[in-house]
Computed example of a mutant assay.
Amino acid sequence: MGLLTGPLPLIPPKNRASDGGGNDTSVVALGGGHGLSASLSALRLLTSELTAIVTVADDGGSSGRLREELGVLPPGDLRMALSALCDDTDWGRTWRDVMQHRFAAKPGKESSLDQHAMGNLLIVTLWELLGDTVDGLKWAGALLGARGQVLPMASVPLTIQGESRNIDSQGVETVRTVTGQAALASVGVVDQVRLIPETAPACVEALEAIELADWVILGPGSWYTSVLPHLLLPELRQALCATPAKRCLAMNLDVNDKEAAGMSAADHLRVIAKYAPEFGVDVVLADPTSVGDRAEFELAASALGAEVVLSRVRVSNRQPVHDPLRLAAAFHDIFAGG
């Protein structure tokens, strides 16, 4: 433990990210998984004053195993956010690849390391040595030369729960409670989504970052399990509603994935209004190919108090993947107009 006390060591100057020409716009991006990584990959091109606030409800894969066996926050989404912010040098890219590396057991062999991500193990190691979640993430960020900081949304692991409604061939409706992010992500449209514990403490540093931000970006990401949870945690929702920062809601490219089967882009906005009616939005950013009925979408956005900005942020092959440069250009224009 003694080796990790005191101030963080400096990454050699040639390996540190530049300040992007002095742009000091303070941006907080909230989400989890691939959606948050997409926004961070774009935002890191615009500012060095960048904070990622990450969901901590994952209960599947490597993260779920570490959470269950060691009682720690699930590190997977935190690792992905750190990797998205890595320094764009051989140093940063190498450590990013180390963090993202997954172990694979030989065919026919069993291994406790099978499918564990190296970065998950490294982050948990830092947490155990330092005894502090935020400090551990700072050390991991220093290793990658991360352009910005990564914080958990809560100081304890969270569980997501919701009600799944199904109608059988005879028209009889059944309702069942679904517990856990991994399970909830595959049951289709759900209702009564909630966090357990409902009044879990938010990360103090995350609350401070939101209060001091110029812009807050929510989304893209799995709507019920990566985006919505930030508005379900009371302290975090209060901070997001009270901040003087401008608020931008970034829409998904695929609005009809497993977690949102049958939902339109406008339905996604209505979910936000339903669960956090006091949460106002200044700008909704969407790719025009994902909006559907534009009039309906603009009406749902206006209910949140938002202006709709349509911008082509999809990769050129029309796959549901954000192009970092296009997304960065869209954010740049939004910030300039704000």
Rank of each mutant, 00 (worst) to 15 (best):
P229V: 08
R176L: 12
S264L: 11
V313N: 03
V124A: 06
M1G: 15
V189L: 14
A286D: 10
I334C: 11
S222F: 05
E307D: 05
T177H: 03
F103S: 00
D191C: 06
G35T: 08
A142Q: 14
M80G: 01
A185S: 15
E110W: 04
V255M: 07
A183L: 12
A29C: 15
A42L: 08
P9T: 10
L228T: 09
A213Y: 02
G22F: 04
T94Q: 04
A306H: 09
P197C: 04
S226D: 10
R314E: 07
G32N: 01
I272S: 05
P320R: 14
G22P: 12
D267R: 14
I160K: 05
S111P: 12
H101M: 11
T243N: 06
K14G: 03
E235C: 05
E205M: 05
D90W: 01
P9G: 12
E68G: 13
M80E: 08
N120A: 03
P288C: 06
L143V: 15
A185R: 04
D59L: 00
L73Y: 06
N120M: 11
L299G: 04
V178R: 11
D323V: 09
V190I: 15
V291A: 06
V281Q: 01
L40A: 12
V134D: 04
P201I: 06
D114L: 06
L207R: 12
G262Q: 14
L126M: 15
W223N: 04
C86Q: 05
D24F: 04
A206R: 03
Y275G: 05
V189H: 11
S26C: 08
P13S: 10
E198D: 07
